[in-house]
Nucleic acid binder design. Structure first.
Lengths: 329, 329
DNA sequence: CTCAATAGCGCAAGCGATTGTAGAAATTGA
DNA sequence: TCAATTTCTACAATCGCTTGCGCTATTGAG
């Protein structure tokens, strides 16, 4: 079923059909009605690919995600996706793996996407650059890369880390450890930097550090390592919630310690599971809905105005107090 | 950058360029090299939309999901997406909401997708039909609808339910309750039917039932309701894991009961969180990787052979025993 | 009543590729 | 060496639509 078939049945020109399906085009009510009648009789639907070709606007936005295991990403993906749909854009989803990123970029560009959203802390800055070089607007979520024309939306990770340090110190903790995410991710760097600076404000330094690489198993290992040392922490800041659950599991089940009586745990993200009673994780909120909204606002602005003015939005961090960490008096 | 530009630079015809980028087409090595050189000099990438138009193969597969909160869906989505990418297809992601499903179908069809994967227990059979009517292959994951030409991939929900009943009865439980998901979903119907039949095999009937609608909050309410009755259950089969976590939270934190000493809980799905120590949820596994693999195999078979022979794959269910339910001796 | 302005429609070019066909070039065999 | 065969390449039609342009019909002001 093409617009020509509809045109024939409605006894109008093919352009009249096209115009009826183009909002704002100049068609009389009479023509529009005849066209619509013919269209619905034939079950006609305009071919979006043809439209994209001729108009140069595919209304396709690529979303790149590295993994969906950490519940933060599905949540963000859902918000992004719904918002884009509401604005009349379609989402082309790509799962990246550490190896084949060039391949991914090549594909994205072939599909003439109008913009790219990269929602992953573990995304190479290289990739961001490659995309941006083509002139397609790129917005990175939860990651900041210097020397790129890509925009970014992050929470205030530095301030978030600082708040955690302050909270733990004021609760009376002395031996405060840190479990890192992926070393060269901007989220980890900023959270860690803010955390150390917050400790320093109270004249403290971190009393232990190990690396969990943002994975569940990595965090379990990191925890065992921390507690195998002579100085055992009485509080741990874990670089994200996803790892914090593993940490809590190891501390309670394997080490037989109580939370928060023996050890306080604070995470980052405020994923849905953090509010589950079995964990009751005190954490720093990254408001996924707002991050998604902001990212889309920036992206669409660039898409629609064809201006690729880099912007970096930093959303405020907020500490969510639950039961996994002792509270200051 | 179009193929014409490349052709000019390489001093060959535009068709030669096209053929170099078409695997299996007849081009001499000499020509191919010249074209490749010119292409990489200009940074040329074939336009996938133009290719799709003329060839009638968009290599686009739509995936419909209703929500990503239940971790089962992100996991499945990731598997599906990676597998499709590996086969050279792109994923067009759509989040459906109960209201605007017609709108979603309209969009999908406009983008000339070659197949549709519906990964959601809460998808109207109507929608499935509308899609299938157009002749585009549809595979439903985790949902079965009669009177459709859509294929489906499910786990053996009936057998799964039966296994749970058998396990609980043999562990000595007498007052066994059921918390339902969405009433008219096929997963709920089958799990419940299998469960009752399993109880009947031991001469028992369910001792309480309430509805959680597959939501976290719904399950919490359902639990409170169950325990407000005069006969309190000593075991509960919850229609999926996502709800089971809420159930466990309410039982332990609000009702002050111990699991599994006072109440046994069994879920369904074996989502990643089920293995977290704080829950240690005994559950029925739905192997997401295998479900994804099967779904894609069926879908691509239909896409590539243009045969829309309906198929219904039922994968075996497997009980995963952890600590949330008493075990038979 | 006349003329300028405007609204609506049709024509046709073109978006960037694929692909059947036909001819030129290269290869083969006798 | 020449005819027969096999590559390989170029030409051109086509996919389904948007959109600038020009024409006709309508409208309204003077």
């Amino acid at each position: 079923m093409t617009s020509i078939d509809v045109a024939k049945l409605a006894e109008v020109s093919q352009s009249a059909v096209s115009r009826t399906f183009t909002p704002g085009a100049s068609v009389s009510d009479a023509t529009r009605e005849r066209v619509m009648a013919a269209a619905s009789e034939l079950g006609y639907r305009p071919n979006a690919l043809a439209r994209a070709m001729i108009s140069g606007r595919s209304r396709l936005i690529a979303i790149l995600v590295a993994y969906l295991e950490n519940q933060f990403y599905p949540v963000v993906l859902e918000k992004l996706s719904r918002a884009l749909q509401a604005d009349g854009y379609q989402v082309l989803l790509f799962m990246t793996d550490p190896g084949g990123q060039d391949e991914v970029v090549r594909r994205i560009l072939q599909y003439q996407v109008q913009g790219i959203l990269m929602a992953s802390a573990t995304m190479s800055s290289n990739l961001a650059n490659e995309c941006a070089e083509t002139g397609i607007p790129v917005v990175m979520l939860n990651r900041y890369v210097a020397n790129t024309s890509a925009s970014s939306v992050t929470s205030d990770n530095i301030e978030g880390g600082r708040m955690v340090a302050d909270f733990l110190v004021r609760a009376g903790h002395k031996r405060i450890a840190y479990i890192a995410g992926i070393e060269d991710s901007s989220t980890n760097r900023d959270r860690e930097a803010g955390f150390y600076s917050g400790l320093a404000d109270h004249g403290l330094v971190v009393s232990g550090r190990s690396v969990g690489n943002y994975t569940f198993e990595g965090a379990a290992l990191a925890t065992r390592e921390l507690f195998s040392r002579s100085v055992k922490p009485d509080a741990i800041f874990v670089a994200n919630d996803h790892m914090a659950f593993a940490v809590m599991d190891v501390i309670r089940s394997e080490l037989g310690l109580r939370i928060p009586e023996d050890v306080s745990i604070i995470g980052y993200d405020n994923v849905p599971e953090a509010s589950w009673n079995a964990y009751g994780l005190t954490t720093v909120e990254q408001h996924p809905e707002e991050m998604a909204r902001t990212a889309i606002k920036i992206l669409l602005e660039q898409v629609e105005n064809r201006t690729v003015a880099k912007r970096a939005a930093i959303l405020p961090a907020k500490l969510i107090v639950r039961s996994s960490a002792r509270t200051p008096d």
